[in-house]
Computed example of a mutant assay.
Amino acid sequence: MHTYTKIRTSMFAAGLALAFALPLSQAIAQGASQPMQKSTDNQTVPDKAADAWITTKVKSEFGTTKGVSASDISVSTNDGVVTLTGTVSTQDEKMRAQRVAQLVKGVKSVDTSGLMVGGMPPAEK
């Protein structure tokens, strides 16, 4: 039974990795056709590829982390800053998601202000 759980978790992680590999491959393909040109948002193509990799890795980590609902959290990355949005069931899940994202290599900071706990809007600062 334990082997079945490992296989299922591995298959889920592999599926997530494949699902999110497309944006990464597109960013890399752009990098090959446009060497080191800056876009209008002042981010180089290699930076965009790194951001796509970080986003993919964070989503993959969520998929394999117990207590984090990967399907309810959206992830975006810009210049190494990960932004999490969506809904989590508890404050503990929100903190766990932040901690998991922060541990991914290349992440400079994590913004969880867009994560709602239990369907409630985030508290105003």
Rank of each mutant, 00 (worst) to 15 (best):
residue 4 Y to N: 11
residue 8 R to W: 07
residue 9 T to S: 15
residue 9 T to I: 12
residue 9 T to C: 10
residue 10 S to R: 14
residue 10 S to Q: 10
residue 11 M to W: 11
residue 11 M to K: 12
residue 12 F to Q: 14
residue 14 A to Q: 07
residue 19 A to F: 12
residue 20 F to P: 00
residue 23 P to L: 05
residue 23 P to Q: 06
residue 24 L to R: 01
residue 25 S to H: 05
residue 26 Q to M: 08
residue 31 G to A: 13
residue 32 A to F: 09
residue 33 S to W: 05
residue 35 P to K: 12
residue 35 P to H: 11
residue 40 T to I: 07
residue 42 N to V: 05
residue 47 D to W: 06
residue 49 A to L: 06
residue 49 A to S: 10
residue 52 A to T: 04
residue 54 I to P: 03
residue 56 T to G: 11
residue 60 S to V: 13
residue 66 K to A: 08
residue 67 G to K: 02
residue 68 V to L: 03
residue 70 A to C: 04
residue 72 D to G: 10
residue 75 V to G: 04
residue 75 V to Q: 02
residue 78 N to E: 13
residue 84 L to H: 06
residue 88 V to C: 03
residue 88 V to K: 01
residue 98 Q to N: 13
residue 99 R to Y: 04
residue 100 V to S: 05
residue 103 L to A: 15
residue 104 V to N: 06
residue 104 V to G: 06
residue 105 K to R: 11
residue 105 K to P: 04
residue 108 K to T: 12
residue 112 T to F: 00
residue 113 S to C: 02
residue 115 L to D: 01
residue 116 M to V: 00
residue 116 M to G: 11
residue 117 V to M: 05
residue 118 G to K: 07
residue 120 M to I: 08
residue 121 P to R: 05
residue 122 P to N: 09
residue 122 P to T: 10
residue 123 A to I: 15
residue 125 K to D: 14
